[in-house]
């Protein structure tokens, strides 16, 4: 694989909190245009890996390159969009419209002491359109359903034109019947706008027909490859790489909530 074509390149990365190793010797390259499903049970180090890629933590061993540049020296943060688990950091009673929330995604890119101009307003509208929420522009964010709110947060990430979009368990708190259309929207963003997507989830089954690549993490990177290869693995191999609670190709959405929670 050509290095210039990779959006994220992680080599020999290890990380530990106090005495416990969370990540060991991770090597992972995400090619431009990929839709990667990063799966692993709770406590497998997924969130730590994300924080490292986003520059919120510094690697202790090994290194991370973003768009070919060392993560520490990477300055164009707006190229990376991030959507966290909604429940983490958002007060649902907050009096802000969808427009205001999405526009806040331009804060860093615009810079201090600058105001939203016409062209930024158009951008905000476009971002809201691309997640199919243009009818809700002037509604308060707290009045929307969980799935709709999550779409708005994706629009907030999209508004700064990211080349890479990272989503951490975005369907936690999203109505089971809306999860599928949510994934369909992600697939469109990937195929039509060419945005590289990393979707972190504990549930492999629901995403295998959408993602192009799968990476299985549990302290070590147990599997990384195209989805078709991943689907060839048998159940025993799968349990081996994923850990004990494997729900492979399980499309029964009611099981989702058994595995939610922080990691």
């Amino acid at each position: 694989m050509n290095i210039n074509e990779s959006v994220v390149q992680i080599s020999s990365l290890s990380y530990r909190y106090d005495k416990e190793n969370v990540l060991e010797d991770i090597n992972l390259t995400i090619p431009r245009g990929a839709f990667l499903g990063l799966v692993g049970p709770n406590g497998s180090g997924k969130s730590t890996l994300l924080k490292l890629v986003l520059g919120l933590l510094q690697p202790q061993k090994g290194d991370i390159k973003l768009f070919g540049i060392e993560a520490e020296n990477f300055k164009e943060k707006h190229k990376i969009g991030f959507v966290s688990q909604k429940a983490n950091s958002f007060n649902t009673g907050f009096p802000a419209t969808v427009f205001e929330v999405v526009a806040s995604g331009l804060t860093k890119k615009l810079g201090m002491f600058r105001f939203l101009q016409k062209q930024e307003q158009i951008k905000v509208r476009k971002a809201v359109q691309s997640v199919g929420m243009e009818a809700f522009l002037e509604r308060n964010i707290g009045d929307l359903s969980g799935g709709q709110q999550q779409r708005i947060f994706i629009a907030r990430a999209l508004v700064s034109d990211p080349a890479l979009l990272i989503l951490d368990e975005p369907t936690v708190g999203v109505d089971a019947k809306n999860v599928y259309s949510f994934y369909e929207m992600l697939e469109n963003l990937n195929k039509e706008q060419g945005i590289t997507l990393v979707l972190v989830t504990h549930d492999i089954g629901t995403i295998t027909d959408k993602v192009s690549h799968v990476a299985c993490l549990n302290k070590h990177l147990h599997f990384h490859g195209e989805t078709s290869e991943f689907e060839k693995l048998n159940l025993a191999e799968m349990s081996d790489i994923y850990g004990h609670d494997v729900h492979v190709l399980n499309h029964d959405h009611h099981h989702h909530h058994n595995h939610t929670g922080g990691n």
């Binding site: 991030f82 966290s84 950091s89 201090m112 105001f115």
Partner: peptide, 18 residues
């Protein structure tokens, strides 16, 4: 802009480098 983002989502503000 910055105060709005800080109030709405402090974690995101941090992540974007505010």
């Amino acid at each position: 802009k910055e105060l709005f983002l800080l109030s709405f989502d402090e974690e995101y503000a941090k992540a974007t480098g505010i």
